[in-house]
Design a protein around this nucleic acid. Structure first.
Lengths: 154, 154
DNA sequence: CGAATAGGGTTGCATTATGAAACCAATTTG
DNA sequence: CAAATTGGTTTCATAATGCAACCCTATTCG
């Protein structure tokens, strides 16, 4: 049967996964963050089939994660650029990347080395922080009045 | 043809997506974080088909995101619990949830309300921070020596 | 005790999604 | 002008998904 969709789920993670939760979408966003903008460049860098890339790009555009703009003088050349919504996925992507680096390190041990453009200093690990900026684990937090709702949300 | 796999990709995001990048896995982890441990509870809360749930749970166990432990006195009852690797997905899940709350808010406007267990204060938005704890956007960072590698990694 | 029920799966089958490659129209480039 | 690029669409074989129906082992209920 049809793949289950979560458009109307009252779980925001489910709704988020509905937009960027498939195999390719987040990778496309990642490469867009690295500066990729053209159809062919996405295709070559990701090794994705053209029809799937078409589908994903148009869905990301529909969901306003990317914006399709005409490039080249006479049209029929396009660029796909991140919207603010798309750029806002930055912490998600970095968190995922750091998790991957930590638990499935690359064979060559290479890790993400993001630096503050202003200072040249490496960034901190992405973490959930309290109001004092102290990192918290899942055991240090509680869900206010939301746990039950989330549980039967699906 | 076979769905493309990223096991051997030298992009850690791709490798991470290989483990938790499908429709269900992150939702299972999310519910595990909310306290769900039993097969039937996952099934009912997520509305997932039993065979898919079986498959995902065993893959998550294989990837050491979950641990399958015998529960109940006489065996044949199990619990699926997060490992440290699984718990380490906390920032990813929270970041994704905050993104969903911001850009696809629930109809009832309900948002995640995570609080520091110690103080009762709400947590901060998950963000990429510099060494001083200041949040950075994607435009404030640069990728040290990694950009080219990531671009042709796929 | 016997039957019903719940937990945790597996199997079959119909429906979708995915990937590779071919094909196409409009632009650029040589 | 011919050839290659860009951005797609179409076709077809294969893999993943969802539903329902079973199975087997406990436990609970009458």
């Amino acid at each position: 049967m049809a793949r289950k969709r979560f458009d109307d789920s009252n779980c925001s993670v489910a709704r988020a996964l509905n937009e960027v939760g498939d195999w390719w979408s987040l990778l496309i966003v990642l490469h867009a963050m690295y500066g990729t903008r053209r159809f062919v460049d996405f295709q070559q860098q990701l090794g994705i089939a053209k029809n799937i890339l078409c589908d994903r790009l148009s869905k990301l555009v529909d969901n306003e994660v990317l914006r399709k703009v005409e490039a080249g003088e006479h049209g029929s050349r396009f660029e796909y650029r991140l919207t603010e919504k798309g750029r806002d996925l930055f912490p998600v992507v970095v968190a995922l990347r750091q998790w991957g680096d930590k638990w499935n390190p690359a064979p060559d041990g290479k890790q993400l080395d993001l630096r503050d453009r202003a200072t040249g200093q490496p960034i901190q690990p992405v973490s959930v922080c309290n109001s004092d900026g102290e990192p918290l684990t899942i055991r240090d937090v509680l869900v206010a009045d939301d746990l039950k709702a989330a549980k039967d949300a699906g």
